[in-house]
């Protein structure tokens, strides 16, 4: 075949090709029919937008006090829409900056656990036997370690550092992910298409990468949307205990902690960060539920 006819052939091919609907496209269409999930998606989108551009909109910085206004209630006239805290810092700016940290911790720590958990679980599940046994007993061993003890030791050895929170939470969370992924892999590896890939000459790693991992992503995505709020909560808990982010940087958990101490004199300093935290957690959970329904093949009637 000469060059020109070949080009013409592929061009003709391109024009006639029909796009198929992948299972993910199908799932996406089902998700869009779920009102709670769509609303959650919108809320989360707005939340990300607010925490990324919000601090720039505020005329006040999150760490510089407004010397004239300590602990004032929310008011637009003073330029503090959420009021100020006991040190006179603008709560709007602090809530937005705190949201950045909380969401960042949630997403980054989850991604860390995702990468480790998927590769670890898929390898353990796929190879099975002694390798699986060894790898999963190691997971059990880490699982048995008290989380708080682990965090405190990290803080003592390395000092307080936001990076350590990512590490600490990621280091614990991948265990769950690995277990889930391993379970999925165990059921996937006996499927005919995996054997077909072996019969086609695929190497073990090619099979894991091209067949096992893409097919367990559905379950993993659902788990991720449920892990992110969990991680945000853990970070809040650490901050509440004073082990989290360090002043003047803040997070929703740290803000709730401060607000709780001034609950009687300045309730707004608790209500705003707590409200944002709660709405975000709700949205993630509803999204997770929606995704689970959308990706669940049993639901396909």
């Amino acid at each position: 075949m000469n060059e020109a006819t070949r080009d013409a052939f592929t061009q003709a091919l391109d024009m006639r090709v029909i796009r198929g609907r992948s299972l993910y496209v199908d799932a996406w269409h089902r998700l869009l029919k779920n009102k709670a999930a769509v609303a959650s998606l919108v809320i989360l989108g707005l939340m990300v937008l607010m925490v990324s551009v919000g601090p720039m909109l505020s005329q006040w910085d999150h760490e510089i006090p407004d010397w004239d206004n300590y602990s004032i209630p929310p008011s637009l006239e003073t330029g503090h829409p959420f009021g100020t805290d006991a040190l006179g810092r603008d709560l709007f700016a602090r809530t937005m900056v705190g949201g950045r940290i909380s969401l960042l911790v949630g997403v980054v720590a989850t991604l860390v656990s995702l990468v480790i958990g998927i590769s670890y679980g898929a390898i353990a599940g796929y190879f099975g036997g002694r390798i699986d046994n060894l790898m999963m007993r190691f997971v059990d061993a880490i699982y048995a370690m008290p989380f708080m003890f682990f965090v405190i030791v990290l803080m003592v050895v390395f000092g307080r550092n936001i990076f350590l929170i990512f590490v600490a939470i990621g280091a614990i969370n991948w265990l769950d992910m690995a277990r889930i992924v391993r379970g999925q892999t165990l059921s996937l590896k006996n499927k005919d298409f995996v054997e077909a890939a072996r019969a086609c000459g695929g190497t073990e790693m090619q099979i894991i990468r091209r067949h096992i991992i893409p097919n367990l992503l559905g379950v993993v995505i659902v788990y991720v949307t449920l892990t992110i709020p969990q991680v945000i909560l853990v970070e809040s808990f650490l901050s509440f205990l004073g082990l989290g982010v360090q002043e003047p940087l803040t997070s929703w958990g740290a803000l709730v902690n401060e607000g709780a101490q001034e609950l009687e004199t300045a309730p707004w300093s608790l209500l705003f960060p707590a409200g944002f935290l709660a709405v975000t957690l709700f949205a993630f959970n509803f999204l997770g539920d929606g995704l689970r329904d959308a990706l669940d093949p049993k639901d396909r009637l």
Partner: peptide
């Protein structure tokens, strides 16, 4: 394979 659709990766 025997199972026509089961031997094809659905993704």
């Amino acid at each position: 394979f025997q199972d026509p659709s089961g031997s094809l990766d659905p993704r």
